[in-house]
Write a protein that binds this DNA or RNA. Structure first.
Lengths: 112, 112
DNA sequence: ATACCATACCTCGTGTGGCAAGGTATATGA
DNA sequence: TCATATACCTTGCCACACGAGGTATGGTAT
């Protein structure tokens, strides 16, 4: 995992967390591992970023949570609310727009 | 132009400015306009972001500048240094990695 | 018993960096 | 004379990623 460009990561945790949870409920630790495995280590969201993000998203009503005790360990499962789905759609749109914009500059030496 | 997502824009100005200037020298005001036209309004970097960014990049020796007086108005042309080219390569690589990572999550409901 | 690691949650302090809102000044056209 | 485009600039605020640390449990190896 060569990366670590904090600036480029801004806004990404919210987007990928919403996207993952839209598919199924997950708990924090699981989300962190999922991001690594699904992206094949292209992305990684540390716990110092993930947990505060989850709390912020819950307080903004994008997520709801429920605590479950499994094998003596506590897990907090998160799911996406209706508001969260709307937010996901918006973020996805913003991301694609941005991404296309960047690619249009990276991929075009004007050669004029 | 649809609205802005400040978080997702983080790191982008440095990348696109380096990319544009790698092609040819430009001055600040021109860069701002170019970003809009080249991306067809997908991206926009305001002057409150651009000028501080240019100064920061110059002090980090990624850019060099020269002032020229044209039609009574001053213009400060910026060009990319060798260090800047290295930085551009790095940022481009980081961006593509990140972008692929995000797409791999957005484009894959696990359905498992 | 005693390490040790994986699981599973958490917070705090620091630094980077986008952004709006302001400012200065010149040339041009109405 | 007034507005608009050009062309530069700074300040203050705030969002956010990150590393480094902390708590606690269960299983496994020594």
């Amino acid at each position: 995992m060569a990366d670590r460009n904090p600036a480029l990561m801004a806004g990404i945790p919210e987007l990928v967390v919403l996207s993952l949870l839209a598919d199924r409920e997950m708990y924090g630790y699981e989300i962190a591992r999922s991001i690594k495995t699904v992206t094949q280590d292209l992305l990684s969201v540390g716990e110092g970023v993930l947990y505060p993000a989850l709390h912020a998203m819950e307080s903004r009503r994008l997520l709801r949570s429920r605590s479950i005790r499994v094998d003596g360990r506590m897990r907090i499962y998160y799911g996406v609310t209706a508001r969260g789905k709307t937010r996901l759609a918006r973020l996805t749109s913003d991301w694609r727009r941005m991404s296309r914009g960047v690619e249009s500059i990276l991929g075009s030496p004007s050669h004029a």
